[in-house]
Amino acid sequence: MTTASRGLDSQGYIAREGALGRIQDAFRPAVAAARDQVADVFGKRLDSAYLYGSVARGAARVGRSDLDLLLVLRAAPTPADRADAHAVAAAVDRDFAEIDGVGILLHSRDRVLSDLETHDLGWFVACLCTPLLGEDLAEFLPRYRPDSRLARETNGDIALFQRRWRERAAAAAGDEAALRALCRQVARHLVRTAFTLVMSRWRGWTSDLAEMADAFGQFYPEWAGRARAAVEVAYEPVGDAETLRELLDGLGEWLVREYAAVHGVKAPRPEDGAGRPGGA
């Protein structure tokens, strides 16, 4: 397999994935509506807006995929900003049956461009986000290789996420819809973390969950089945507490130990990572 087919450019840097031209026709009205509402609601508060995820990559499934946006504000997000983002997300989700939920992340320009976030949020913007509105902050960020530093800074906080997921699972007991949403989030994050564990050895980047699991399985064949099962849950989530427990107690707990041993633990962030893409 060539480096180009592994998400790298000719110099071995991670190529930016996604583009407005890749958006499938079925999702263009939802993206346009989201863009217009963000511009109208946030106005001068907005520095830039980005689309990321399967819709930006042209890999979304009608009625099954969610719409993911990152809004970079001129100042640190306030409760009012978060309420406005929630209202925009709810309106777009309500109006377009082609998407299964809308997620909007909020961060400030200063935080995205901070030294602390260069290999986390900065990398996320530069490599995984497609410009939608405003200035593209990728112009102020470096180029990135799939190395151990990037692995640590993006997913070296898996232990923190494990604790939070367990708390949310306990709070969602008996709520099938909440458990389904949490199963999807946990499964996605675990597969992506498993991939970044090995990406420096695999020497490439991908956001395709199945390809991530296959790459991981090349280096940890004894865990390959668990990773493939997590991909299935990510694509077809269930509101089942037992499925969630198996994800957390199995692949999740193993990743906490192995990730720390291989790449180290990420330094704490303000708010302990709240509102982050979670290894995108």
Rank of each mutant, 00 (worst) to 15 (best):
residue 113 L to K: 00
residue 50 Y to N: 02
residue 158 I to K: 03
residue 168 R to L: 15
residue 27 F to E: 04
residue 104 I to N: 04
residue 128 L to D: 11
residue 71 L to S: 03
residue 136 D to W: 07
residue 247 L to Y: 07
residue 18 G to W: 13
residue 277 P to R: 02
residue 223 W to S: 14
residue 243 T to V: 13
residue 66 D to C: 11
residue 184 R to I: 10
residue 234 A to N: 06
residue 39 A to V: 09
residue 92 V to T: 08
residue 159 A to Q: 03
residue 53 G to L: 10
residue 126 A to G: 05
residue 186 V to C: 04
residue 144 Y to E: 00
residue 8 L to W: 12
residue 147 D to T: 03
residue 142 P to T: 00
residue 188 R to V: 07
residue 106 L to F: 09
residue 246 E to Q: 14
residue 47 D to V: 05
residue 208 D to A: 12
residue 218 Q to L: 15
residue 46 L to F: 13
residue 240 D to V: 05
residue 225 G to R: 10
residue 41 V to N: 04
residue 78 T to G: 03
residue 89 A to H: 03
residue 277 P to H: 01
residue 206 T to S: 15
residue 93 D to C: 09
residue 68 D to W: 07
residue 96 F to G: 04
residue 135 E to F: 05
residue 208 D to R: 11
residue 224 A to C: 15
residue 63 G to Q: 11
residue 279 G to V: 08
residue 245 R to E: 14
residue 154 T to G: 12
residue 131 P to R: 09
residue 153 E to R: 07
residue 276 R to L: 08
residue 197 L to F: 11
residue 183 C to K: 03
residue 227 A to L: 03
residue 79 P to T: 04
residue 134 G to F: 10
residue 53 G to S: 05
residue 238 V to F: 09
residue 25 D to T: 13
residue 10 S to F: 12
residue 149 R to C: 08
residue 226 R to I: 09
residue 32 A to W: 06
residue 91 A to I: 01
residue 104 I to V: 15
residue 198 V to K: 05
residue 255 L to Y: 05
residue 280 A to T: 02
residue 153 E to L: 05
residue 229 A to H: 12
residue 79 P to H: 11
residue 222 E to I: 10
residue 1 M to F: 08
residue 267 A to L: 09
residue 238 V to N: 04
residue 31 V to P: 12
residue 257 R to F: 07
residue 11 Q to L: 15
residue 245 R to P: 04
residue 83 A to T: 06
